[in-house]
Design a protein around this nucleic acid. Structure first.
Length: 378
RNA sequence: GCUGGGAUGGCGGAGUGGACAAUCGCACGAGACUGUAAAUCUCGCGGCCGAAAGGCCUACCUAGGUUCGAAUCCUGGUCCCAGCA
């Protein structure tokens, strides 16, 4: 097995741990951030940029890549990573998130040809493509088949984030099918249950009983505000195995959310808002730049007050953007809708989070994780 | 100088007797964004009061007029544009 997870150092005071995930495409030093490349592109960045931001791994998406460009194209390239020119480790999500997200576009009648969910049954999710209205049935088995072709190192079980019981059934089928097709990828089982300790524990026990190579935590409580994320993770923190990596799906809350998650044993997480916020002008800043819990460690670069600001977004940040451009210039790029705004902003935010993870790893190694955390959140 | 057309909120531009403080777009302002249908979305945008419902005031170049009622009709003025001289 080319996949392995090893804890290098445990924090003495918390569940934070410094580890290494090994994959066929390279190692991931954990705790790590995986930026999101939903459609085989980390929006606005090419693989060279991605590398320069310090990213170790990227996450692609089953739902989107299945619909476009489709499996024939991806299989020809041997996976979405070679397709996009990314040589490092990858993760794919199962489409489970779309099962709940697309409910917002639920159809009252089957002939509605716009994209959205038609119905969800124990068999799978029947939906229409948002691209061309085509009708599909996504099952746990199909998700495994798709993800096999997408070729990521880490793949996710299909779940229904809004249905606890259905998730259990779908995970079991995901696992069974994953075994059946002898995929060399590492399948992560997903723990649901919100902030309910009983549900989370039951879900975790179920995942552990099947010996998934890794564990993921999902649900809207993970992507919510840091306090709720902490509460949700607290339900399982003492029950986690030492030898399996823990992935937080869609972990939100910026630096505060990250600290709370790492403190509770999260080894790796993805998050799409880091890049999306970049594209809408919200840029992360360090405590030295005035970043704090109250402003969520971010500035809105398009605001008038930055119109003629000579300094970079962050005086601490080593990213390409901060090393070369002023706030005034980036403000101007956003106000004039220049395409470079997207790229420079994304480079900054992704570099920022990766740097935060780097500092986090160093602090765990040095045994002062809580000191780092309190420095940021004081 | 003549002939014709036109002047509406920061800008463009609807409206051509009552449902108009005035569609819409842009700009501007505020907010949101968390396993990405997101270079997106929501809200506000004459002034004052109000949490809101709503109320009051000032307004469609300007000065008058007609009318129960005028951004809309009439008259004078100012300015702009096009064509002709």
């Amino acid at each position: 097995m080319e996949f392995s997870f090893e804890v290098v150092k445990n924090d003495k005071k918390t569940r934070a741990r410094r580890g290494v995930i090994k994959t066929a495409h390279g190692q991931i030093a954990t705790p790590a951030f995986s930026p999101v490349a939903t459609k085989a592109t980390l929006k606005a960045l090419d693989p060279k940029d991605i590398k320069k931001t310090g990213s170790q791994v990227v996450l692609g998406n089953t739902y989107h890549l299945y619909l476009q460009p489709g499996l024939r194209v991806i299989s020809k390239f041997g996976g979405f990573a070679p397709f996009m020119g990314w040589a490092g480790p990858t993760i794919t999500d199962s489409g489970g998130y779309q099962v709940s997200f697309l409910k917002d576009y639920s159809h009252k009648d089957e002939n509605d040809r716009s994209g959205g969910i038609i119905r969800i049954t124990d068999e799978g999710a029947v939906f229409r493509s948002h691209i061309d209205g085509g009708k599909y049935l996504l099952t746990p088995e199909l998700s495994m088949e798709i993800q096999k072709i997408l070729g990521a190192d880490i793949i996710m079980a299909l779940d229904d984030p809004e249905s606890y019981d259905r998730t259990l059934k779908w995970e079991e089928r995901s696992f069974t099918h994953w075994k059946k097709i002898k995929s060399k990828q590492s399948l992560f089982g997903i723990v649901q249950g919100g902030i309910d300790p009983k549900l989370r524990k039951k879900s975790l026990d179920f995942v552990l009983s099947m010996d998934f190579p890794g564990i993921a935590v999902g649900g809207k409580t993970i992507g919510a505000d840091p306090k709720i994320t902490a509460k949700a993770l607290d339900t399982i923190v003492d029950l986690l195995p030492e030898d399996k990596p823990l992935h937080a799906l869609g972990l939100g809350g910026g630096p505060e959310g990250i600290f709370e998650a790492v403190e509770r044993g999260v080894d790796i997480f993805d998050n799409s808002s880091v890049t999306r916020m970049a594209r809408t002008g919200l840029l992360f800043v360090y405590p030295q730049d005035g970043g704090k819990r109250e402003n969520k460690f971010r500035v809105d670069i398009a605001k008038k007050k930055y119109k003629s600001e000579f300094d970079p977004v962050s005086k601490v940040c080593k990213c390409y953007t901060c090393q070369n451009f002023s706030m005034a210039y980036i403000n101007h790029l956003f106000k004039s809708h220049e395409i470079l705004a997207q790229r420079l902003a994304t480079i900054h935010n992704v570099t920022f989070v990766n740097d935060l993870m780097n500092r986090t790893r160093e602090s765990i190694e040095a045994g002062d994780f809580l000191a780092l955390k309190s420095h940021w959140l004081s």
